[in-house]
Design a protein around this nucleic acid. Structure first.
Lengths: 195, 195
DNA sequence: TTAGCCATGTAACCGGTTACATGATTTT
DNA sequence: AAAATCATGTAACCGGTTACATGGCTAA
């Protein structure tokens, strides 16, 4: 149940229409909580029904007509409640790690190329984040209001840094692996706890 | 579509029953691809229907009776295909970062305690991984077959290290934040690209 | 013989994904 | 006038989550 709160946050930062929200989710908030326009429209409907947001009465809504939403006090209260409430971290799901684990069993054939591609993608994302940091958080102390935003961006930068390093290391290991696939060499299964 | 491949990998490492798989998903593979027993039974049924696995004919299956599965050649081929196929990284979803972003708007009240809790959880996970590394990958060169497994574990260790560091940093920043919540101080919304 | 655990399921729900529909506005 | 784009939706599906059901085995 996080999408409604992502939307409330975005609307508090700036009242927007559905499509504007969609565009903002493509950058910014979407860096750590993505959403399609279909999701957003569905959720806007619910939030309005619950009295958490309302359409600005300025223009009459019709199909194909812009509808701009703002957050109501009840919505702000709900967001504050949710932000403060304890939440367990969700167990991570990472396909790439799963594929490496599978490769340990069926061979690494073809995997290396995709690792390279991922490395390139993460490098690009990293430099995009660093560009944003240069532009929005120049050296020197942030204003108190910007501290939290900078903190979030820092998480993005450090995560992408981790992935580029790890993928680089992985590719080095691949280069040292003997031959192609250990396909036909079943061996005693290792203890089940190893990663 | 990753759960069936996670199961195929686990079954190739060692033929198992549904509940055994469930237990193995609680450690090991579950560190980066979790699954409940309901998911696993459903998926085992599908995989059997597709001819990717089969129940070992040893014992007759009845309700409440163990059923052990093994991977068929078609299943191994499918896993190899999937492992080698290019896949785009899924956009990350991280609730904690979303909550920080929300806190920048509605205030940090109550958030700090949960950050501390998360820090503690990540520290515990980190030392669990490090324990596994000490036990299964003692210093010195890994055997080629263990390289990939060690690589996966390394990703887990480095990720948890990142989180503990970032959370520590975040808590330091919180300590410096003025007062409690900037609740009643709306300001010009910052540019929408920052993090 | 009752309680508790082992083991395998079924069913309902819910959020995210994909495909498609429709009206309004702008461009060619 | 046709085509492209903007903007708001509907509908179907699918994987993950939660709650519940059922049979067999074991220990108090």
């Amino acid at each position: 149940m996080s999408l409604p709160h992502a939307i409330l946050t975005a609307l508090l930062e700036k009242p927007s229409s559905g499509l504007e929200l969609t565009r903002r989710f493509d950058k910014s908030i979407g860096y750590f909580w993505s959403a399609t326009h279909q999701q957003i429209y569905r959720e806007l409907g619910r939030l309005e029904g619950e009295g958490h947001i309302r359409a600005l009465p300025a223009e009459q809504p019709a199909r194909g007509q812009k509808k701009r939403y703002e957050v109501l006090p009840a919505g702000r209260a709900e967001l504050a409640r949710w932000t403060a409430a304890a939440q367990d971290p969700k167990p991570q799901r990472d396909v790439l790690l799963l594929r490496l684990r599978a490769a340990a069993v069926v061979g690494t054939e073809g995997l290396e190329a995709d690792l390279r591609r991922h490395l390139e993608l993460h490098r690009r994302q990293l430099s995009e984040y660093e560009e944003i940091e240069r532009r929005d958080f120049p050296p020197g102390r942030d204003a108190p209001q910007d501290r939290l935003r900078h903190l979030v961006l820092r998480a993005g930068i450090d995560l992408e840094t981790f992935w580029t390093r790890w993928l680089t290391h992985a590719l080095e290991e691949f280069a040292e692996l003997p031959g192609a696939a250990p396909e036909a060499q079943p061996r005693e299964p290792a203890p089940d706890t190893s990663g």
